[in-house]
């Protein structure tokens, strides 16, 4: 039953949230909010409208700023405790997600377009948290 042990370790890791700086907090909260609104839109059988597309576009800007900050402090000579390649794999994916979601949702003017935006925003939010963990070296063996 190693997975129970793993689950409780994960819960403990999640509760020690020292890696969460204010930038990650903003990106995480905003991403989860957009994901939540998109899910509500989907459940209510609403296609992505101007509000949802606007919110996702704003999320795109927030995430670009989030990644740009890591770029600036990396150029300034700081580096992640975890693997550099992994941090950038996450950050590059993060900035692509809302754009991909918007392109994909544009072709699907139904509730499923809203669910696609929910997936994009949720994954981007979780990945911001993971990027911050890699930077701080949380969960590294």
């Amino acid at each position: 039953m190693t997975w129970i042990a793993a689950l409780s370790t994960a819960a403990q890791t999640a509760s020690s949230s020292s890696y969460l700086d204010v930038y990650t907090g903003i990106a995480l909260a905003f991403g989860l909010t957009v994901a939540g609104v998109s899910v509500i839109w989907g459940l209510r059988d609403r296609a992505p409208d101007r509000l949802l597309i606007g919110a996702t576009s704003l999320l795109q800007v927030v995430l670009l700023a989030y990644a740009a900050r890591y770029l600036v402090i990396s150029i300034g000579g700081e580096g992640p405790v975890g693997p550099v390649w992994e941090l950038w794999a996450y950050l590059v994916t993060i900035v692509m997600l809302p754009a991909l979601g918007l392109i994909w949702a544009k072709d699907e003017p139904t509730r499923w377009g809203s669910f696609v935006l929910a997936v994009a925003a949720f994954v981007a939010a979780v990945m911001c948290g993971r990027a911050a963990q890699i930077w701080a070296g949380v969960g590294m063996s």
Partner: peptide, 25 residues
């Protein structure tokens, strides 16, 4: 990849990006 298939496909795209980059490195 229409309707619900779009969401499933989007999830698969995320897993392709994640698994390919991770395995490669």
């Amino acid at each position: 990849t229409q309707g619900p298939g779009r969401v499933i496909f989007a999830m698969y795209v995320v897993f392709v990006i994640g698994s390919v980059s991770r395995a490669t490195f």
